[in-house]
Write a protein that binds this DNA or RNA. Structure first.
Lengths: 345, 345
DNA sequence: GTGAAAGCGCTAACAG
DNA sequence: CTGTTAGCGCTTTCAC
């Protein structure tokens, strides 16, 4: 039903080799022949099979992308930017959303290998290291973003999580907060870095780091909400929370509200990622911005360099985060202090 | 570098035909041979090339999905559900985000044809009908969701937009609102249906349909905000707005707030879609829920039926929307009336 | 039960 | 400048 190179060749009265050359724009072809062939291709609405060319050329011009959850705005945004960059470079992308299931991870990796992708990007929360090792062994380039697997020497591009955690915490401290807790995503390396940044900032500002103020949960609105409620109803509630991502921060906001705290007057919260959500929720979230676009584009570029063998050594790129102050943070007890002052007078 | 069927055959001491049979689990194969071959495949970490099998079998077990914008939560969610369903059925998905660019639309359609996808799903806002006609002509099944192209007889599954528009408006009317405006997305059929529903509800409730109360804009937060501000600062401002989707509704909320109106006390707004956003914004949005999961899964099922030639005629499935009442709508002037009453006493 | 061989649509030498 | 031909890795008759 769909025309092949033979149909084009026959109708144009040339050999398939000639057609192939005009498709790929290489070899020497007479101007007229080229024009004629192009016209016929157009007429027939011919689309060269990438299956066939991939088979012979041993290159599919396709990369695989594994992400934990496409419905999560952070991953949707980063995936969109990878896709955009890939297409600029003439590559297509197979997007796989693992939903944090190990079974799916394995299925998808296998799928990508069967598809003979030229390379693969793994974004965060990928658990089965042996699967990656298998790809490497077979010579499939792999790049990582928003995570790191120290035992493997891989290309990575990520935001500087440590610094982000530091900035968030320092911001809260500079507003006069002393009781600052952090709620982070469970079991991911980037979280640990953010927590380290949090701790160092606390120490540096001369604030006490309490174990009970560091909690790890599932990265959902609900997780953030429940954790915040637990903290805020404890005997020594914090006045501010650094949440490990925007989703958690929104959960924290909801939890604070459930505890009758008004943000930012009674309580401050800062998020991480600066997704669409941060601008939409109320109050708009003070958050640590990841350069999402840049990460997505750059990881593709790095992978492509690796595929093309242009890399002498693995790249490990770390991009700077940036504090974006919106309305979920405020000077500690600004109101209350002034009231107090008034009363004391 | 990656092992082929020949490597497996050689190492197992059988022919490639035999290996092929065990891969596809067909033909008669001795139990021992099968076991042996499977073991070798495992050992070699062999992944059959879908390029090669696709070439011979004329089936790639891949479907293409075209969406306007992956970073938009509605499309991210629907895409995620399509992907999930497809993988349950053993299909893989190539996701293409057109960003509403006609050039990209064309590029992606061409890509999908070169990839020899078994079928294609187009989600909303696809503009170039001739491109679809080309696919149809070449026998590539196409299914549509969240849109309709009346000139083409295609499989579709969508929410009942008319009914949704009606429900939203009727809800507002039942709360006592009389001056109800609507802000819809420009140039898409689903919008027109929602507006029709709006108008019919207005008429049925005996409310005046003003031309100035029906406005169409770009589907962005900003678009919604600006349109709302224009309406609310007009000489005859509405007391409620039905927004064509959640993003617009959030823009409307922001616009109302900029006009010093408190939601829902001074002003009500209802959205459409019931994405994650509706639960996260403040106040949580009363909205018309689309059965996003179901739409995504069902459109895949319909496409697959078509691919398998199991359809005698085209399906046109319309799923019911559902009003979800949250906190962005309230009885008109409940407060003010009571204040007034108090004063009058 | 198993294998030999043709062919899927294309690319890449190589000849002419 | 253009054509011939040998694969790429796999499926699928058809023999044995």
């Amino acid at each position: 039903m769909q025309p092949t190179i033979y149909d084009v060749a026959k109708k144009a009265g040339v050999s398939i080799a000639t057609v192939s050359k005009v498709i790929n724009n290489n070899g020497r072809i007479g101007k007229d022949t080229r024009k004629k062939v192009l016209k016929i291709m157009e007429e027939l609405n011919y689309h060269p099979s990438v299956l066939a060319s991939g088979l012979t050329r041993k290159r599919t011009e396709t990369i695989g992308v594994l992400i934990p959850d496409l419905a999560n705005p952070f991953f949707a945004e980063i995936t969109a930017s990878m896709e955009e960059r890939a297409h600029e470079l003439g590559l297509s992308v197979v997007i796989c959303s693992t939903n944090d299931s190990e079974e799916k991870e394995a299925k998808y990796i296998s799928l990508l290998m069967r598809k003979k992708v030229d390379g693969c990007i793994l974004a965060s929360r990928f658990t089965q290291v042996s699967l990656i090792e298998n790809m490497i062994k077979q010579g499939i380039p792999v790049a990582l973003t928003s995570q790191d697997i120290p035992s493997l020497n891989l290309n990575t591009v990520s935001v500087d999580d440590y610094k982000g955690g530091y900035q968030a915490t320092a911001h809260l401290a500079s507003l006069g907060h002393k009781k600052i807790a952090t709620i982070a995503e469970k079991n991911v390396r980037s979280s640990h870095e953010r927590i380290k940044g949090y701790m160092d900032a606390m120490i540096e500002k001369g604030l006490a780091v309490e174990d009970t103020y560091i909690v790890e949960v599932e990265p959902t609105v609900k997780g953030g909400k429940e954790a915040a409620e637990r903290l805020l109803t404890s005997e020594d509630p914090p006045t501010a929370i650094f949440a490990g991502n925007d989703i958690l921060a929104i959960g924290v906001s909801q939890g604070a509200r459930a505890c009758q705290l008004e943000i930012p007057n009674d309580f401050s919260v800062v998020g991480f990622d600066n997704t669409l959500l941060a601008t939409i929720c109320d109050p708009p979230l003070t958050t640590i911005a990841q350069p999402i676009q840049q990460i997505g584009r750059q990881i593709v570029d790095v992978l492509v360099s690796e595929i093309n063998g242009e890399l002498d050594y693995k790249q490990r790129i770390m991009l700077p985060p940036e504090l974006v102050v919106r309305e979920s943070t405020k000077k500690l007890f600004e109101n209350k202090v002034s009231i107090k002052t008034t009363i004391e007078k």
